[in-house]
Design a binder for these strands. Structure first.
Length: 220
DNA sequence: GGTAGGATGGGCT
DNA sequence: GCCCATCCTACCC
């Protein structure tokens, strides 16, 4: 078979800046089911977390503008990439109107294109669902690095697109992962039953995954 | 199937 | 100096 047929896959339009110019939690919820694309690699966003910035001490932007957090206060629709635990990059997308802080952490993807490339980047991953399950894993799989800090995700090689075939999604809301302060706030959004979601899941359906109109990849 | 523990570096108090 | 929005390996059930 011809790999995952990534060259053949067609996604919808690139999300415009107005998509991101809204309250952070709203953007986090709306990003579920959209497709993160970087070159030949692409994955459906199945898990996000909102970091509203204002009134949320868990947000990096809680203590104001620094060299690192500057982009979070800037124009929406840009990438905020940061290093965590000295080893892993985390990808966030800036929300809220310019001047207001807020970003959405992308925590997990369901790979749909460029899967062979993702496997090369993630040799430790066994099953398909392990390739991009977790914020550090997905940046590795997608080839997202520190230089993507500030990248405009409404144009260029790193973008978010509408799915090929939009469908209604069952969304579940939970507290964020690994947060001690503001720990109880319901700001994590996941696709219910999706087996590509990291961490706590209420239920995992046997079908798993979002159904696609095209072949999602090499069966395993 | 599950989890404990080590690796590792930049940002901020 | 201490804190992380983590991942992987080893090891145990």
């Amino acid at each position: 078979m011809s790999e995952d047929g990534s060259a053949m896959l067609r996604f919808g339009c690139v999300l415009k800046r107005t998509f991101y110019e809204r309250p952070t939690a709203e953007v986090a919820r709306a990003l579920l089911g959209k497709v993160l694309v970087h070159g030949p690699a692409a994955g459906i966003i199945v898990e996000t977390e909102a970091y509203p910035g204002r009134d949320d001490l868990a947000s990096h932007s809680a203590r104001g503008i620094t060299a690192r957090t500057r982009v979070i206060f800037g124009e929406p629709g840009h990438a905020y990439v940061y290093l965590i635990y000295g080893m892993y990059q985390c990808l966030n997308l800036v929300a809220e109107p310019a001047g207001m802080p807020g970003c959405v952490l992308i925590r997990a993807l369901q790979p749909v294109a460029g899967i062979e490339l993702m496997r090369e980047r993630r040799p430790a991953a066994g099953k398909l669902e392990d390739i991009a399950r977790g914020p550090g894993r997905l940046t590795m799989a997608m080839g997202i690095i520190r230089t993507h800090y500030g990248a405009d995700v409404t144009r260029g090689s790193l973008v978010v697109r509408e799915p090929a075939e939009p469908r209604s999604l069952e969304i579940e809301v939970t507290p964020r992962v690994g947060i001690r302060i503001c720990a109880e706030r319901p700001l994590r959004f996941i696709l219910r039953g999706n087996r590509f979601v990291s961490g706590p899941r209420a239920h995992v359906s046997s079908s798993g995954g979002v159904q696609l109109s095209c072949n999602p990849g090499t069966p395993r």
